[in-house]
Structure formats: structure tokens, C-alpha cells
């Protein structure tokens, strides 16, 4: 019966995801009714050509990016929370996101006009490639460093401390760069840190899709390891888990997801920390075989919803996604946690 209820809820979330996806396609500075969205998606050549262009070239890639980023960030947050047995852990704790930001800062602040924000928003321009590439290099370097250090440690808590230290170092380095740059460049960098789902099109979208699929596959394969880690490393070891190997798999998949998504969308906060909590509340379980798909679905739905809110219906203004995720999401989580009175489950 319990299993049936879970399947029912997962099915419900899947349905909700479909609705959110369609709603996201229809909302924007130009409102396109849902009925027309169906026509534009499923019967080629029909409907208004301007609408067709808007939906196929702009909104569809953006919605797909939202789904990919929502899934990826949420499951990597779940991985971090279980691995560190800490409810405050999120994809950024290893310093990967900060590493990506550092890469971007290095390019933007030293390259000057070469990679402007305008270039990022220009579809498929070399500037956006440069930025994504720089972010990947930054994230990758931090990942290698964390991996090298992780093989020397017995304890996952030490990993958390090292991740936080890596975070501070990269943030400090970025700050030095900002300090010596001129205001326009700093503003461009600042705008990048607000995050954007809209810049990923064409080949970039394929690459992001590939990264997220590979990352998710690794994450799903780590479900069993994560279940064992719920009891702490000693018990996990006594049940036959090779803790160091598990750590490599977890660090690699989280780096791939968080680094890749940050490279293409900029830093998107909040999803990684909040969605796993929502999944636990909704499914009342700690089994990662349930929490993984649940976090995926919830993350995608939430990010799509945030994207709808970001382009406030009826107005021309579009707010940065990173602001919305925190502003809308955090109160939701506070409300749910307080109402459910489940705060003590993380003792």
C-alpha cells in the first residue's frame, strides 16, 4: 500500500512537471495561450510563425535547460546532504560552484570587452562558449584538487571542511580579480552570478543534456551506497562499502552536475539545499531509490515554476533566476518544515 502511494505521488509529480513545462512555454513577455503551444509543438508548420520561432528557438531550450538544471542540482544536493550527513550541505559545498565562478571571473575580468554579457545573451556566440569553457575548467580544477585530497582522508566531515576552505580560497581569488577590474567588467560578472536559463541553445544544449544525463546515471548508481552511508561511515564499511571509492563516485558526479550546470546557466542557488528536504517531507522516506527520482521531479518543477515567476506575467521585466529561486523557494521550505513539525528529523 505504501509502495502504491509512493508511485501515485511520483506519477502526480510527473503530471505536474508536464503542466509546469507547458505553462513555462506559454508565459513570457508575449503570452502564448496553452492551446496554441500544443499546436506549435505537435503539428509542424501551423500557427503564427513569430510564435513558432519564440517557442521553438527561445522558450523550448530555456524550459529544457530549467528541467536539466533543476534535476541535476537537486540530486547533487541530495548526495551532498547524505554524504556529509548534514542538512545544510548543497552542491556548492565542495567548492565546485565557486571554482566555476572563478573561471568565469578570470575570463570576464581579464578579457574585458571580449566576453561581454551581451555576447552571452547572443545565441551561440563565441563569447558564451568562452565563458562556459572557463567555468568548466575552473570547476574541473577544483574537483581534481578535492579528489586528490579526498583520497588522503578517512572522514567525510573533513571533506566538508576542505570543501568549505576551497570555497573561501576561490572566492578570495575572485575578489582580488574584482578589486583590480574596472566597474563595467565587475558589473558584467555580477550579472553572470545572477544566473540565467536563457543562454543555452543549439550545441550547448546538447552538451548540457549529455552532461546531466551522465551525471544523473552516476547518481542513480550511487543510490545504494548513499543508503549505506545513512548510518555513518563505520557501519557503511562494515556492510562492505568501500568508502573511498564511494566518495570518488559521489564527488565526480556532483562535480559534473554542479560544474556543468553552473558553467552554462551561472550559479543557481537554493535548489540543491531545499529540494532534497521537500522530497523527504513529501515521501517520508530516506531510501535514495525513492528520493532520487522524487528530487529530480521536484527540482525540475520548482525551477520551471521559478522561471514562470521570473518573467512576471503581463510585464516586460524579467528577473534573474537566482533571485527568484531563493526568494520564492525559501519561504515555501520554511512553511513546510514548520507545518510538518519535522524539524527534529535532522538531529
Amino acid at each position: 500500500m505504501k509502495v502504491r502511494l509512493r508511485r501515485f505521488r511520483l506519477g502526480g509529480l510527473l503530471l505536474l512537471l508536464g503542466l509546469a513545462f507547458l505553462f513555462d512555454l506559454s508565459s513570457g513577455p508575449i503570452r502564448i495561450p496553452l492551446r496554441d503551444i500544443f499546436h506549435l509543438l505537435f503539428s509542424r508548420g501551423s500557427g503564427d510563425p513569430t510564435w513558432a520561432f519564440i517557442v521553438r528557438s527561445i522558450r523550448l531550450p530555456k524550459a529544457i535547460t530549467a528541467v536539466l538544471a533543476g534535476c541535476g542540482l537537486s540530486v547533487s544536493g541530495l548526495q551532498m546532504q547524505t554524504m556529509f550527513r548534514n542538512p545544510l550541505a548543497e552542491p556548492g559545498v565542495l567548492g565546485i560552484t565557486a571554482g566555476a565562478s572563478f573561471g568565469v571571473a578570470a575570463v570576464m575580468l581579464s578579457g574585458g570587452s571580449m566576453a561581454t554579457l551581451y555576447a552571452i545573451r547572443e545565441l551561440g556566440s563565441p563569447g558564451s562558449w568562452l565563458i562556459a569553457g572557463a567555468a568548466c575548467v575552473g570547476a574541473g580544477l577544483v574537483m581534481l584538487l578535492v579528489l586528490a585530497l579526498s583520497s588522503r582522508l578517512r572522514d567525510n566531515v573533513l571533506m566538508l571542511v576542505i570543501g568549505l576552505m576551497m570555497n573561501s580560497i576561490t572566492v578570495a581569488l575572485t575578489s582580488i580579480w574584482q578589486y583590480f577590474s574596472n566597474p563595467e567588467e565587475v558589473k558584467e560578472y555580477l550579472l553572470w552570478t545572477f544566473g540565467s536559463l536563457g543562454g543555452v541553445t543549439g550545441l550547448q544544449l546538447y552538451i548540457l543534456t549529455a552532461i546531466v544525463i551522465v551525471g544523473l546515471a552516476a547518481v542513480f548508481l550511487s543510490s545504494k551506497m548513499l543508503d549505506a552511508l545513512l548510518l555513518g561511515e563505520n557501519y557503511a564499511r562494515s556492510m562492505g562499502l568501500t568508502v573511498k571509492r564511494a566518495r570518488v563516485i559521489i564527488v565526480c558526479s556532483t562535480s559534473l552536475l554542479a560544474g556543468g550546470i553552473t558553467a552554462f546557466c551561472g550559479p543557481i542557488g537554493f535548489m540543491g539545499i531545499a529540494v532534497p528536504h521537500l522530497a523527504r517531507l513529501l515521501f517520508n522516506t530516506s531510501s535514495h531509490r525513492v528520493l532520487m527520482p522524487a528530487s529530480c521531479l521536484l527540482g525540475a518543477i520548482l525551477l520551471l515554476a521559478c522561471d514562470c515567476i521570473a518573467q512576471w506575467p503581463g510585464t516586460q521585466t524579467v528577473l534573474p533566476i537566482n533571485i527568484i529561486t531563493s526568494l520564492v523557494g525559501a519561504p515555501v521550505v520554511i512553511y513546510l518544515l514548520v507545518r510538518k513539525k519535522n524539524l527534529n528529523i535532522y538531529r
Binding site: T82, D227, A228, L230, R280, T285, Y346
Partner: peptide, 18 residues
């Protein structure tokens, strides 16, 4: 072992890990 929302049956079931 306290946190993580585990229920007793799931915890006992974790023993089947190997």
C-alpha cells in the same frame, strides 16, 4: 544513528546491503 528520517524497518533492511 538518529537522523535522516529513517524508519525502523528500513534501517533493519539496510543490513541486507551485502
Amino acid at each position: 544513528v538518529t537522523g535522516n528520517n529513517l524508519d525502523v524497518y528500513s534501517l533493519v533492511a539496510l543490513g541486507r546491503y551485502p
